[in-house]
């Protein structure tokens, strides 16, 4: 819980630590310092997460100037570079477009670029592909994988989609009713699930044949900011 998500709800118990520091009791100002620079957030629904009244460019430039204190020109150059990193063609042109003029997949890339803009250590991606169609999903996951590898980033992916898990994750924590019921490496969880809930989850996907005949583990990169996070998100 990075301070902003719940409305109406309260933190009953549990703990959230970032870089070994407890976040839950921190005053708002200090938590704000973590946002963007230490922990960044990629939301679920790309289109509603961009301010419709500003251009893509100005939305990317804003945190660079406000949070990192870059000059206008530096921030612009950086924003174009970020768009290039998330594989957007013709970033100069996209900078001048408004959110309603781009596609969902492109918007999700822009959001990833925005999340990366202040060099975070951990990226929290909340079902980043749920709202996209399948081919675009694959592209966005590719982008996530690439920036993760390039930057040595920790990625905390929240998802229902076991295909995405198999594709992208090193370690998995299965959650049920807000509690982690099982953790392990992706291979363990997918091939030798221990907890009954995990089995139910897997059974729901592998209807006829296993999704992949031979599963090869992805190249394991232990991210620089791998944090022991225990967020109370219902999976």
């Amino acid at each position: 819980m990075l301070g902003i998500l719940p409305d109406g709800g309260r933190v009953g118990r549990g703990s959230v630590t970032v870089e070994g520091r407890e976040v839950l009791g921190l005053p708002e100002k200090q938590r704000r310092r973590l946002r963007g620079r230490v922990v960044a957030y990629v939301p679920q629904e790309p289109m509603s997460n961009l301010d419709p009244t500003f251009t893509i460019g100005s939305q990317l430039v804003e945190p660079l100037r406000c949070v990192l204190g870059l000059s206008r020109r530096e921030a612009r150059a950086r924003a174009v570079e970020l768009l290039r990193q998330v594989e957007i063609k013709d970033p100069e042109r996209v900078m001048g477009l408004y959110p309603h003029e781009i596609s969902g997949g492109m918007a999700q890339r822009v959001l990833i670029a925005g999340a990366l803009s202040c060099d975070p250590l951990l990226l929290v991606a909340d079902e980043p592909t749920t709202a996209l169609d399948v081919t675009v999903q694959a592209e966005v996951l590719d982008v996530l994988r690439r920036v993760q590898a390039q930057r040595g980033l920790g990625v905390l992916l929240v998802t229902h989609n076991l295909g995405v898990v198999a594709d992208l994750c090193d370690r998995v924590a299965v959650m049920q009713d807000g509690r982690i019921v099982e953790t392990g490496t992706t291979e363990q969880i997918l091939t030798r699930p221990q907890h009954p809930d995990t089995r139910t989850l897997l059974a729901a996907v592998l209807d006829d044949a296993p999704a992949r005949g031979e599963w090869t583990p992805p190249t394991v990169v232990s991210g620089a900011g791998t944090s022991t996070d225990r967020t109370e998100v219902t999976a």
Partner: peptide, 23 residues
Amino acid sequence: DFVRTLRARGLPPGRVLFRHVVR
């Protein structure tokens, strides 16, 4: 949603309010 996302970028709340919300 975008207000939450802007906050998550670490922008000061006053800026989010007057630049984005009010507009």
